[in-house]
């Protein structure tokens, strides 16, 4: 089985699938060929927006214009304007940097914590494995949103807090997957053979186990970023994330909510961009996953 058979949920942990419940058809389904392509294209545009937003939007995302508040989408304002007369298109473009960097940072935190725990459990002694596994079981008792909120309650709201909170919320899932992966690789005939050949433990770990076990992290990371963006925007939406007037997508949604009766575009467009980002990372992640699957079982 692959570790990512289970659907990645945007807001929550991996399903607890007992062995009997593995759905065998996972590999059979094919994405339409254009899917990954479109996803790649969309993500490429996002990357441009992150690195050089001025290439995509000429204006300033913070420029207010009281003569042009709440204008509907038009040629002058592709996505309309908001309650301060700011151009929503420009804000969405510049918001990519805010939202993606939060998503990336949160994923990095989650993966880092997950790796520490997962590797310790997978490579350490049986005793360490037991302790970590038990600890993870306890952490899984908390739905991720609650874990994140608990952290925010302890350390207060704000972007840094939000990144760590989302990271902590996702870490147990990563840790369990990494542990499983390490153990799976550790027990392959290939590593077994290396052991029989008398290779040192260190060499086996660094040359064989780690590279093979880490490869799926690319997939996890890709899938995780989309997930983390949705997460972070949810916390921003609750007023616990980015402060105004930052063009973070979740914060834009939160601010636009009160104006929905007079300006639907404030709600529809940033939300659609979040959904597209999440879809694109999922599509790309699964595409990479299929590419890796063949190699991993060697």
């Amino acid at each position: 089985m692959t570790l990512l058979d289970a659907p990645i949920t945007p807001l929550d942990e991996q399903p607890h699938l007992p062995p009997g419940a593995v759905h065998v058809g996972a590999r059979r389904r094919r994405w339409p060929g254009v899917g990954p392509l479109l996803a790649g294209l969309f993500l490429a545009i996002l990357v441009v927006a992150v690195i050089r937003p001025s290439l995509l939007a000429h204006g300033n995302p913070l420029t207010v214009d009281q003569a042009a508040t709440l204008l509907p989408p038009s040629i002058h304002h592709l996505f309309g304007t908001d309650q301060n007369g700011r151009d929503v298109y420009t804000r969405v473009v510049y918001g990519a940097r805010e939202s993606l960097s939060i998503g990336l940072a949160a994923t990095a935190v989650g993966l880092a914590l997950g790796m520490i725990l997962g590797l310790a459990a997978g490579l350490g002694s049986k005793w360490i494995d037991t302790v970590v596994s038990r600890f993870l079981e306890v952490m899984f008792a908390f739905p991720s949103m609650l874990l994140a909120l608990l952290f925010v309650a302890m350390f207060g709201a704000g972007v840094t807090s939000l990144i760590i909170a989302v990271g902590i919320g996702t870490a147990p899932g990563y840790a369990r997957m990494i542990r499983g992966q390490v153990i799976a690789v550790r027990d392959t005939p290939y590593v077994e053979a290396a052991r029989v050949l008398g290779h040192s433990r260190k060499r086996i770990v660094f040359r064989h186990v780690l590279p093979n076990a880490m490869r799926p992290l690319v997939v996890l990371g890709t899938l995780g970023v989309g997930q983390a963006i949705v997460w972070a925007s949810a916390l921003s939406f609750l007023g616990l994330g980015a402060a105004p007037p930052a063009p973070e997508w979740g914060a834009m949604l939160a601010a636009g909510r009160d104006y929905i009766s007079v300006a639907w575009w404030l709600e529809l467009i940033p939300g659609a961009v979040i959904v597209l980002t999440s879809l694109a990372t999922t599509a790309l992640g699964r595409h990479i996953q299929r590419g890796i699957e063949g190699r991993i079982s060697t």
Binding site: L11, D12, E13, H16, L17, G20, P143, L146, A234
Partner: peptide, 20 residues
């Protein structure tokens, strides 16, 4: 039947969602 086991997991996801 196999999918039913997801209900436990789904409950956690629903509780997270219920917050929002």
């Amino acid at each position: 039947l196999p999918g039913l086991t997801m209900s436990g997991w789904a409950l956690g996801s629903l509780i997270s969602g219920a917050v929002i």
